[in-house]
Design a protein around this nucleic acid. Structure first.
Lengths: 100, 100
DNA sequence: TGAACATATGAACAGTTATTCATATGTTCG
DNA sequence: CGAACATATGAATAACTGTTCATATGTTCA
């Protein structure tokens, strides 16, 4: 009874790695940290992290697909924010680790 | 005062993304989950997750470099294990997320 | 409706990365 | 020492991924 955790099945492992892969990119993690400070529209995100609108939009699509961010349309502009508090928690665990 | 968290600097963001990148690969996350159940030598890991000794060794090098696993030599064989409990915690957060 | 604006998307290219194969290093034991 | 075994490593290749450029979609307002 010293360890009850079984090796997850292949599908779960695949999903898990896909999930972490999203955090494993400089641009996306910067984007997530930026959104952590509050919702922002695409162009403002692009300006604040120094990327083109297109690149940001492509990445937001990935983040949205993985349910890490949510979009809210208001007229012409779409405001993005972190999907839930969980995400901020995961960013924190990572930051903790790299600070020893 | 509604949000005290500042955007981490570029170097921190780079480290953070590199850290998560390690979890963002099917093979490595499988390897980490396997090691979670206890220390194992390279060949046994390779057999249990269906990879060549060489591929596993290459990946272990990456994991070791990021301080996610630690190696302990005992004669000819080297036993690897998770570097600390932190790692298991990060795996758990990911598993929680993908299970909604 | 049409012009102006914000965002999304498709294709292509460049850079990155995981695996394989061959081989080197390190360890034990006769 | 030398054979046998376990692990590590270098080079090459195939597959993947992020950005760019061009353009499409969607929205507002005159």
């Amino acid at each position: 009874m010293e360890n009850m955790v079984r090796l997850p099945d292949d599908e779960t492992l695949a999903k898990l790695s896909e999930f972490y892969k999203v955090f494993g990119d400089y641009t996306r993690v910067k984007l997530l940290c930026q959104l952590r400070q509050g919702e922002m529209c695409v162009q403002d995100i692009a300006d604040s992290i120094g990327m083109t609108q297109s690149a940001v939009s492509h990445q937001l699509r990935i983040l949205k697909g993985m349910a890490l961010v949510a979009g809210r349309r208001d007229g012409k502009t779409v405001f993005y924010s972190l999907a839930d508090d969980h995400i901020a928690g995961i960013l924190d665990m990572g930051l903790e680790h790299i600070n020893e």
